[in-house]
Amino acid sequence: MLSITAIPLEGVKFPLGDLVVTSGIWDLVMAGRMNPAPYLKRHGSGDWGDVCASDKALNDRALKGEDRLVSAYQVDQDLKIYVITEWDRSVTTVLLPSEY
Rank of each mutant, 00 (worst) to 15 (best):
C52N: 15
S90C: 12
A53T: 12
L95M: 15
P38Y: 08
L40E: 09
I84K: 04
S23D: 10
V20A: 14
K80N: 11
L16I: 03
H43S: 00
D67K: 15
V94I: 11
F14R: 13
E10T: 12
L2S: 07
L96C: 08
L9F: 04
A62K: 01
Y73I: 06
M1C: 08
L19M: 05
D78I: 00
P36M: 12
H43L: 00
V83G: 01
E99W: 01
W48M: 06
V29E: 04
L19W: 03
S3T: 12
T5P: 00
D76Q: 05
S23M: 00
D18M: 10
D27H: 05
Y39C: 02
A72D: 00
A72V: 00
L96P: 09
P97R: 09
D88F: 05
L16D: 01
L16F: 03
G46V: 08
S54H: 14
D50T: 11
M34H: 03
T5Q: 13
V83T: 05
G32I: 09
S23R: 06
V29N: 01
W87Q: 04
K64W: 09
D27R: 12
S45G: 08
Y73G: 09
A6Y: 06
G24W: 03
G46C: 10
L40C: 08
Y100R: 11
Q74R: 15
G49H: 04
L19Q: 06
Y100E: 05
K64L: 14
L96G: 04
L58M: 14
P15F: 07
L69E: 11
K56V: 15
S54F: 14
A37C: 01
D18C: 00
L2E: 13
V83D: 04
I25F: 06
V75A: 13
V21W: 05
A53P: 01
T92L: 05
K56I: 15
E99V: 01
K56F: 06
D55L: 12
V20F: 11
Y73L: 02
P97F: 04
L19S: 07
F14A: 11
A62Y: 10
L79W: 05
A31I: 00
L69M: 13
G17I: 07
L69A: 05
L58I: 12
E86V: 11
P38D: 11
G11F: 08
A37D: 05
Y39A: 01
A53R: 13
P36Y: 11
D60H: 13
F14M: 10
D67R: 15
V51A: 07
S3W: 10
K64R: 13
A31Q: 04
D88E: 08
I81T: 06
L2I: 09
Q77I: 08
A62C: 07
